[in-house]
Design a protein around this nucleic acid. Structure first.
Lengths: 143, 143
DNA sequence: ATTGATGTAATATAATATGTTACAACTATT
DNA sequence: AATAGTTGTAACATATTATATTACATCAAT
């Protein structure tokens, strides 16, 4: 059981937009060829990133660019843009209310899991696009 | 996008086994009525918990019990018993190798996400079944 | 032997993610 | 104004995974 690849794809898109901003017009087709998914997936994701205020997309003429500098965009921003703000785990909806475990498990376990989730989100905040771009540049230099 | 309810269900099962060990024989049917899922789901989950060494299941006669005390079983044990040991997120399998972002994203972003996952696992280790049982007992007392 | 359980296979159903096609709307350019 | 390339989005198809259910062989205490 894993999270979908929406976060990785969205991050990939943002990194490409920044990395190639001076070389290419970063259209959905261009981005799709780097990520290797259908351009429509890119457009949908770009729509979520736009709604979250992370990118601007040029209507008509095409191409996208970041609205902030890469230092100011974290994985937390990206995660929130493309994933629902919901519990980390599904819970069985109708446990037995006559059982003391059944009627309290969601509250008790849910609280602990929500703490874990908040830590995860805090971790996401520590990673910026700039960090990732730098790591990629380092790898590129070593090739 | 959420994790399945395998962890919550498995935890629920373990808590019930301990909570009712002196009152009932904790068969898959009994447990199923508290969790409110099909008994076969309970048996499969119990099979995973048994494989992980967390419970013993009485063949033939039925019923399950913990192999350790609740202080010594954490959510980490339960998570490992019922979930694959894999990346937190899916990655697009074939990004464009001709693109510097495409050929490095998995390594670079994957490393950061693996750190987040390790933190999550560490958080799971902090929560024991005994903690949860105590929280439930507190709620029961307040009812 | 009977009874009530477990373990497991086979299959069905549901939910979700992803892929694809199609097309209206938009904007710079000619 | 017409064109060309692009975005935004709907509609639909496909794949994957999780969960539910039925069935039944096997087991062990009575």
């Amino acid at each position: 059981m894993q999270f979908s690849f929406r976060l990785p794809v969205a991050t990939h898109i943002l990194l490409c937009i920044e990395r190639f901003k001076d070389e290419y017009k970063t259209t959905s087709t261009f981005l799709a060829s780097s990520v290797n998914v259908n351009p429509v997936i890119i457009r949908k994701t770009l729509g979520q990133l736009k709604a979250a205020g992370l990118v601007e997309v040029a209507a008509g003429v095409g191409g996208a660019k970041l609205t902030k500098s890469p230092e100011d965009i974290t994985l937390w921003d990206v995660f929130r843009a493309v994933e629902e703000d919901e519990d980390l785990f599904h819970f069985q909806e109708n446990p037995n209310p006559k059982c003391p475990v059944g009627r309290n498990i969601h509250g008790v376990l849910g609280d602990r899991l929500e703490e874990v989730r908040q830590h995860m989100l805090a971790d996401f905040k520590k990673v910026t696009l700039a960090d990732l771009l730098e790591s990629i540049a380092t790898k590129e230099a070593a090739e």
